[in-house]
């Protein structure tokens, strides 16, 4: 069984090196996203993109590295506070603010990662959860974070000092914030592209090997800990990028984004969409965020619904939406 798996893996590696990237899906996705603000509420569309990027960043670690972090909200929400502070108090331009927050999330990822990768499996999940709580309480108690209220009224500023991101364009009687929208679109696609490249790089393949059989990867001479740490930092930085962008979009950094509920949500997005697939987290994020949006009038029944989906996914639907479709297609063809 193991030997078979290994052959399969090496086969995939060969196949991967062989195939040239197909840019058609990219073009189609870009077209759909570019058209989206004319059909759905742009701020909602931007939020969807931020959460999709967050889930993809998380999936890089769980789906491809096999590490379940239960504290990823601290990078997402922590970076939201950092970018909020940079934009509001220091008056940085949006791209610098987001860059600063992403770097901050990477540093945080390095610190937390150094401690967390010392344990594996279930312990890893508990350790990341507990360490993320330190960040949560820091966001609650530090003087510059606004306590329970969060950081409000984060200005959008001018991109590169030139383009006013708060400007709207009037189309068909609607005021559309197109400058901001396309800025967010560029960030999301940039982040997703980076993840795609990483997964298909030698680094990504080594990561998958570690996920499948850590002892074997170690015996082949891979410095397993370094790979894990690198994946953790990268995942943290990209989660931070998503959080910083979200703070810019909604003009708010709040405790919700750093709380452990958010960490659980991103796990659900990835699980529901299909962990270890590139597209799964996007589908999961869109589903979960839309669900929140649709059910927001139901109060705490949303929590019950989210919990029930969790239970259902774990019991009966472990491949997730995209994973299940891919599995069916593979069986048919």
């Amino acid at each position: 069984m193991q030997a078979h798996d290994l052959n399969q893996t090496s086969l995939n590696v060969v196949r991967m090196a062989d195939s040239r990237p197909n840019y058609l899906p990219w073009g189609m996705a870009l077209a759909v996203c570019a058209a989206a603000p004319f059909f759905i509420y742009p701020v909602f569309a931007m939020e969807l993109m931020c959460f999709a990027l967050f889930a993809c960043a998380f999936n890089l670690l769980l789906g491809f590295g096999g590490l379940l972090s239960f504290g990823h909200a601290c990078f997402f929400g922590g970076a939201a506070y950092l970018s909020g502070h940079a934009l509001k108090v220091w008056g940085l331009t949006p791209e610098l603010g987001i860059l600063f927050a992403t770097a901050g999330a990477a540093v945080l990822g390095l610190l937390i990662g150094l401690v967390a990768i010392r344990r594996q499996g279930i312990y890893f999940a508990m350790v990341t959860l507990a360490l993320a709580q330190i960040v949560f309480f820091a966001c609650l108690q530090l003087p510059m974070t606004g306590g329970e209220d969060g950081l409000q009224g984060i200005p959008k500023g001018r991109l590169l000092g030139l383009i006013d991101l708060s400007a709207t364009v009037s189309i068909g009687g609607q005021q559309l914030p197109l400058a901001l929208y396309f800025f967010v679109l560029a960030i999301t696609f940039g982040g997703y592209w980076l993840i795609w490249r990483t997964v298909n790089s030698p680094f990504g393949v080594a990561l998958k090997a570690i996920r499948e059989n850590e002892a074997r990867a170690l015996s082949l001479g891979y410095r397993v800990d370094r790979y894990k740490l690198a994946a953790f930092v990268m995942s943290a930085a990209l989660a931070g990028l998503a959080g910083a962008t979200k703070a810019l979009v909604v003009g708010l950094a709040s405790l919700t984004d750093v709380s452990w509920h958010m960490s659980g949500e991103v796990v659900l997005m990835t699980l529901l969409g299909g962990m270890g697939t590139l597209l799964g987290p996007v589908v999961g994020a869109v589903t979960v965020v839309s669900l929140h949006h649709e059910l927001s009038s139901l109060g705490s029944w949303v929590t019950v619904t989210i919990g029930s989906i969790f239970v259902l996914c774990v019991l009966a639907f472990r491949r997730g939406i995209v994973g299940e479709i891919a599995h069916r297609l593979k069986k048919t063809f």
Partner: peptide
């Protein structure tokens, strides 16, 4: 890990119902 995720979902359900 699935055991952890399942019980996480259950925790949300219990909490949500009582909230």
């Amino acid at each position: 890990l699935y055991g952890l995720l399942l019980t996480f979902g259950l925790a949300l359900i219990f909490e949500g119902v009582f909230t």
